[in-house]
């Protein structure tokens, strides 16, 4: 299977800060690809640029053969690229059900939406009891589940996840990684940004390491787990 998403020469500046300095990477269809790195390395900026939420200073993004570099955010989502942003981007004043429904906002295939809704509730049974409560009243873990479920409701071809394990208890983190693995087993292509480097590399087929806006290493998840530089800088060994 070939590259579903190809990024070349991606650059993002914030004023005089070069947050992303011309990086290349690709996502293979059906795989989990991870992008790991320390605080401020440029991970979120990269994801926001893919989704069209920050301006790209240079570079090109090709998704399924189509150049999406300059498309507005909502069109990118409609094409099948969904993102669960850092901090979950909860709509706290909407109910859990409304959040999920909004995930399918642009879709018109009512029957498939209903079956996706049921599927999300099977993946995250805890959401079922909270359907008519406000999303703002959910725990952090439940909010992350809702954010992922909501993105799945768009029936994306690629799911971008920005630090889904952030701020969660170890048990919940296990649960989230299990779900990511499961979604991928169902055929979803996943781009996972993490600071939880060990966990991310364990489930990833392909991996990139980013430092101060540049990709410094790449390989399979397994390869990088044993790489001396990764061991030293990220796994504390």
């Amino acid at each position: 299977m070939g590259a579903l998403l190809e990024v070349s020469g991606l650059k993002v500046n914030f004023g005089h800060v070069e947050a992303v300095k011309g990086i290349d990477f690709s996502l293979t269809e059906g795989q989990i690809t991870t992008l790991v790195g320390a605080n401020g390395a440029g991970k979120s900026t990269t994801l926001l640029a893919l989704s069209g939420l920050v301006r790209k200073a240079a570079g090109q993004v090709v998704f399924g053969g189509q150049n999406i570099t300059r498309l507005p955010s909502h069109r990118i989502v409609h094409l099948g690229l969904s993102q669960v942003a850092e901090g979950r981007a909860m709509l706290t004043k909407l109910t859990v059900r409304e959040n999920l429904e909004l995930g399918a906002y642009h879709r018109r295939d009512t029957d498939a939406i209903t079956s996706d809704f049921d599927h999300v509730l099977e993946l995250f049974p805890r959401l079922r009891e909270r359907l008519d409560g406000y999303a703002g009243n959910l725990s952090g873990g439940e909010q992350q589940m809702l954010a992922i479920g909501r993105a799945v409701m768009a029936r994306p071809r690629i799911l971008l996840l920005d630090e889904p394990s952030m701020g969660l208890a170890p048990l919940i983190v296990q649960e989230i990684f299990r779900i990511i693995k499961m979604l991928n087993d169902e055929g979803l292509t996943i781009f996972l940004v993490e600071q939880n480097v060990r966990q991310a590399l364990k489930i990833a087929h392909q991996a990139y390491v980013i430092e101060t806006g540049e990709i410094v290493l790449q390989g399979t998840g397994e390869e990088l787990l044993d790489h001396p530089r990764v061991l030293e800088a990220y796994l504390g060994i």
Partner: peptide, 15 residues
């Protein structure tokens, strides 16, 4: 209502 709470979150939902 989504846009009112967070334009960015709304955009990521395809709105």
């Amino acid at each position: 209502r989504a846009v009112a709470e967070s334009p960015r979150a709304a955009a990521l939902l395809g709105i």
